[in-house]
Design a protein around this nucleic acid. Structure first.
Lengths: 257, 257
DNA sequence: ATTTCTTTGTGTCAATACGACACAATGATA
DNA sequence: TATCATTGTGTCGTATTGACACAAAGAAAT
């Protein structure tokens, strides 16, 4: 197992097993109480919040490395995970304190120089079911938790920029691919799905038109079951029709020439 | 100037100025005689065809590096250039002969070991105006030329895979962004634009419906000029309305929720 | 010079999709 | 038992789309 414990005496060797100059950062989106949340880490020494990230082992593809990182931070395997951009501004480590200062400040580890290298980072975004995640800090952070999108302040390095790009990508994806399977529990109401769309897009949608359009995609299965215990009329529950959902992922939803 | 001449005695030093493990590959699309073409290099020692590519200097972003590479191969600056995917399969250099064998075979350069490293490659696709390109081979190739998409055979390493992904991205981009400004000459007919779309999408489009739809986007300016000298009725020439074109690039064309 | 031919420019029409909005049904709450 | 907010369903006018018709025009054939 590849832990990154700072006090691990074998770490120097392990650092050498990572590819130099290359890192990855993950924007993990979750949805809970009608709010879009992002999984963040608070760095031990500076208190700065940061995106979960990591490095690439010599025998890993970058996708495998991202899955490993997310498994460590969320406990989840087989996450919906897409690379969306490479961040390679030579100054990206220099707008803010260098990584080595942030994560190793006041300490003199042999790998300080390793962290001082310039890193080109591959950005991934992940969609996960909020309730299934068990946030785990890494060796350099003391807290790992969900932060509401609107409450996110200054992040480490260029992580605000990375987050912004991830959101743009997610919004674009929304216009030609179905979304929700990885963000909602198995059973959900159309209002919950609509609020997910509204939250990602940052604007309100007409309830009735949304219903008509999303049903027309034929990616939902209506259940013989309603959600009880909520105020007012009990809404019907739906689940995704996986077969059609995946077909829609492949074929796209609209805008064909 | 950063040449890569094999016989350049300063090259060993220059190689050290590149970031290790990181490369980039460009899929350069051009359009001529109603055919989509890709700029390819023929490697000197093996005769294998390959995508133009290069490495990243210590002070460059990957975008700047890609622009530099394309400037060297095409003579063009300010090219439409988008990164679309990172290729990082640890085996990507091993399905085919290693890079060092391909480009340095039979020779013993000190940098052979450098090429034997594992590379993670960032894929870019570029759209350029065919007639403005002056293809230039690099230090490791003897030919640089346009190859019709349908005539492209086995490429070096995983370059076929990279090309395939670039095409998919291009096709997807077509559904929500205008295209053509970087691929057609300044003045063009609607038929030429339509054939560009048909070529990229690999299917025929209804001439009249295409015309109606593309004109509705309001990204074209009709000129008081026709193309003479072609068979049959002289078609009206159009050019792109840059202001509206760029707005459409930003806002997207359709499929909004 | 005249006719032919093929492509272009414009338009029609029905089917479908979309945005804005109305109203009855229903389950929790008062 | 009445109230109330939310849900399920539907309407209507407009815009968009796909399939197709036809006349105009310039090159090519005669």
């Amino acid at each position: 197992m590849k832990t990154e414990t700072v006090n691990d005496e074998k770490k120097t060797i392990k650092m050498k097993n990572y590819l130099q100059h290359i890192s990855l950062d993950c924007v993990v989106f979750g949805f809970h109480s009608n709010q879009l949340k992002v999984l963040l880490l608070r760095m031990k020494n500076t208190g700065t919040w940061a995106l979960p990230g990591g490095f690439v082992c010599e025998d890993e593809s970058i996708e495998v490395a991202a899955n490993r990182v997310l498994k460590e931070r969320t406990g989840l395997d087989e996450i919906f995970l897409h690379q969306f951009n490479v961040f390679s501004d030579p100054q990206r480590s220099k707008h803010n304190p260098a990584v080595s200062d942030l994560i190793l400040s006041g300490q003199t580890y042999p790998e300080k120089s390793w962290f001082d290298k310039r890193f080109i980072s591959v950005g991934f975004y992940a969609l996960v079911e909020f309730s299934q995640v068990e946030p785990q800090p890494d060796a350099f952070s003391d807290i790992c938790e969900w932060i509401n999108l609107e409450n996110i302040g200054n992040l480490m390095l260029d992580h605000n920029h990375i987050l912004q790009k991830a959101l743009e990508t997610l919004r674009m994806q929304l216009t030609f691919q179905p979304i929700g399977y990885n963000l909602l529990p198995e059973k959900f109401t159309l209002s919950e799905l609509r609020k997910l769309y509204e939250t990602i897009l940052g604007k309100e949608l007409d309830r009735r038109n949304f219903q008509r359009k999303i049903l027309a995609y034929d990616i939902l299965t209506r259940l013989e079951e309603v959600r009880l215990g909520v105020a007012h009329k009990a809404p019907v529950l739906y689940k995704f029709n996986l077969e059609n959902y995946k077909r829609a992922l492949d074929e796209g939803l609209q805008g064909r020439w």
